[in-house]
Amino acid sequence: MTSTPAAATGDSQPAVNLTINGIAVAARPAMTLVEAAWHGGVPRVTGVSCLESVCGSCRVLLRRGKEVTVDLACQTFVEEGIEAVFLPPQATPKHHYEISEFTDSWNNLARFHEIFPEASHCRHCHGCVRSCPKGIDVESAINLAAAGHFRDAGEMFLECVMCDLCDSACPEQIAPAHVGLFCRRVSAHFRLRPPNLIQRLEEQRKERLLGQASPDSHE
């Protein structure tokens, strides 16, 4: 336990010095970058929400020596000498589709390539994989999606928090996170037909028909 960053909490610990948005911060050990930004009074840190790395808002560029990476500030702990810059909010996605317009699932692959024409252009640079704060093998998932393996591809995006870091890391502008969500959505939309739910819906439909026949029906 003493090896964990969280073990050190006392004020007696020496401060960890780092830079956030250009401002020098003396943080306590085991703080996350979000806590450190608040602690150090860094102004205008607006991209913060869930504080438990599921909302994907608090995206940062981090520099350790010559190495620059991306991550989520709420899951990154302070380190001596690192520099962090909070990134601006994500751009609006440019790919458009409405799932209600999908009718024939035999055409899903064709529709996919119409909606995401870039998905088959992957140049295998691994930028998306490096950028993912959730450790998703984004590149493999995109290649699965491009081959029509929507369910498997979607499953790989289970932990995706839509931070869109892979989108900004993709030189072909594939928008991998949105491809992943597309895969999950079409899989549910076309494949999820649970008997227990359908049975209950059917019972409710019959009840409503009966209810309509009687004068005191509601709904």
Partner: peptide, 13 residues
């Protein structure tokens, strides 16, 4: 229908 997934049992429930 909007595309949300749920856990299923082996029989699809």
């Amino acid at each position: 229908e909007e595309g949300m997934q749920f856990e299923q049992t082996a029989s699809g429930d």
